[in-house]
Design a protein around this nucleic acid. Sequence first.
DNA 1: CGCTATTATTTCAACATTAAACTATATACC
DNA 2: GGTATATAGTTTAATGTTGAAATAATAGCG
Lengths: 150, 150
Amino acid sequence: MGTHHRGTEEEVRALDAYIKLMRAANALTARVHRHLAEERLTISQFGALEALYHLGPLCQKDLGRKLLKTDGNITLVVDNLEKRGLVERRRDAKDRRYVMVHLSDEGRELIRRTFPRHVAGVVEALSVLDPSEQQELARLCRIVGKRAAD
Amino acid sequence: MGTHHRGTEEEVRALDAYIKLMRAANALTARVHRHLAEERLTISQFGALEALYHLGPLCQKDLGRKLLKTDGNITLVVDNLEKRGLVERRRDAKDRRYVMVHLSDEGRELIRRTFPRHVAGVVEALSVLDPSEQQELARLCRIVGKRAAD
DNA sequence: CGCTATTATTTCAACATTAAACTATATACC
DNA sequence: GGTATATAGTTTAATGTTGAAATAATAGCG
């Protein structure tokens, strides 16, 4: 087991699952990032572009909700995407608190080109599990994630 | 399912598992960090202290291998722990390339006090799964992590 | 022995991330 | 209508994170 802790069975079991889950997440993140690095995209930038691509223009608050990130973080990520001309900020005329983030043509083209490779990478990484195992993994993670989130 | 992508069954299944795994890892990380924040410890700092506590003094390279982090990262994390007096750097006399990192008395006391609460938090977060589910989650994550790592 | 390759660590630039303080705008309600 | 409250976004300080370049020390080998 992946832990050096001497504890009850319950503790060792929970710690082992925890560590394995974290390592799997880290390893997957690193692998996915390898793809993205070729386009000089970070994972956060890719996540933002993908959300805008699939959901259409979003205000920064909603973007943060989708990506589970803080306001300040979204400000920076959008800053960096804007610098590269991949997205455009448009202040909402009706409620001037909101900043709607739109994909630029270049951003749309980039995410359209990049997304299939991302999908292929994820499929490949998870192909070590058969379909029912993938579904079981998703089910267990959903339960754990839901509990941990509250 | 957690994805808006229109693709083959295989793709949707893999993406769903991927997203659920990432969200579970994020949520668990945030929850664990809540505990640690009370002691003004980051997750990385806690990880380093824990490794030193359970494995004894390590050089920074080995610490990085345990925590799956880069050399430069370890330098910074150890810097911050050292500033707080929780660890001590000792240059190896035989091979002066190595810096051995030792827990200070204060660091040992802190991790001894903190670790049980960490364990309790992990046990609590995973208690939504029964024992066999936890083991299955660990098994699936181990497989995915191993593949993704190479 | 002396040169080369390897290994451990540090430094640096760029980006991520959070929490907290702050600004700007809009809403609610008396 | 004016004031309190809530919401969106920005800024700042601290830490993390990587990848690449730079340092320092050792090991291998002709």
